[in-house]
């Protein structure tokens, strides 16, 4: 995504069109950038509140809709707190896209296992849009999703639509039993015990809290996935987004430039890569 003539520190203005309340702590912000922002599934943008700061997010919307970007945000810090107070009409900034995105070129002819936790389903939804849009993009898609409680299930309105699709399996779980839930209970890794997938012809992509990624990676290795077929959306603090500012490294990798999804084979031997 290089472009010599472009100053990547200067954002593109974006208008906030709509705010969708997903859960008590998660909202989706629908933005119209002043010029189309083309991205590949899994690439991220820096979303800026002018004068306050910015934070990195992978859009949760379709890469095929560069004029209308959706960003799904968990309220958890300075920028995200302020974002959650915004009303439509607000003026924001977008920089990017940055990063490599999901390894979608490897997916045709393969099955894709998507493992999400909490708001980690947001970046994965851009991948789902990509996979749903083109039947050739992958063979089958298996979505395994976990949240702490029923109220915290992100994009709940869309699960039926996903599950009804050909080639698609969708399952959700919550961490502990709850009166409003008659589905699977347990951590998301418990959904991985009885997958109808052949690890030799499947790519696994996971996004969620770091501790979850660690146990998902271990579980996938246990059930026969080669490390080369596991991609994890890693979490690190980022600032510039382009490999200059230095803070997002995991070993020799800059997450902003080489990620944010890294192949487990590349990081499994790096001390503290997964906490």
């Amino acid at each position: 995504m290089s472009n010599d003539a472009t100053n990547h520190f200067v954002p593109v203005a974006a208008e906030l069109l709509d705010v969708i309340v997903e859960t008590p702590t998660i909202r989706t912000f629908v933005l119209r950038p002043a010029r189309p922002l083309r991205f590949r599934a899994g690439q991220f943008v820096q979303l800026e509140l002018p004068g306050l700061g910015e934070a990195p997010f992978t859009p949760s919307s379709s890469p095929q809709e560069p004029e209308r970007i959706e960003i799904t945000v968990l309220r958890t810090g300075l920028v995200t707190d302020a974002l959650h107070r915004l009303e439509p009409g607000a003026r924001l900034g977008l920089r990017g896209p940055f990063g490599r995105g999901y390894p979608v070129r490897r997916f045709p002819g393969q099955d894709v296992l998507v493992v999400g936790g909490g708001v980690g389903l947001a970046p994965l939804r851009s991948l789902l849009h990509h996979l749903f849009a083109d039947p050739q993009s992958a063979r089958r898609v298996s979505i395994q999703y976990g949240a702490r409680s029923p109220a915290e299930l992100c994009f709940r309105r869309q699960y039926d639509d996903w599950a009804r699709r050909d080639r698609v399996t969708f399952r959700a779980t919550i961490d502990r039993p709850h009166d409003d839930w008659d589905g699977h209970v347990g951590l998301v890794t418990t959904l991985l015990d009885d997958l109808d997938l052949d690890p030799a012809t499947t790519y696994a992509v996971s996004c969620g809290p770091e501790v979850m990624l660690k146990f998902v990676a271990w579980k996938l290795r246990d059930i026969g996935f080669p490390a080369e077929r596991i991609y994890l959306s890693m979490n690190r603090s980022m600032s510039c987004g382009m490999g200059l500012c230095g803070r997002c490294n995991i070993g020799p990798y800059y997450l902003c430039k080489d990620g944010p999804d890294l192949c487990y084979a590349d990081i499994e031997d790096i001390p503290y890569a997964l906490g």
Binding site: F9, E48, L49, P50, G51, L52, G53, E54, S239, C240, L244, C245, G246, R247
Partner: peptide, 11 residues
Amino acid sequence: CHCFLLFDRAE
């Protein structure tokens, strides 16, 4: 050493 942090301020 060239690590930096982008820092925003209202003006």
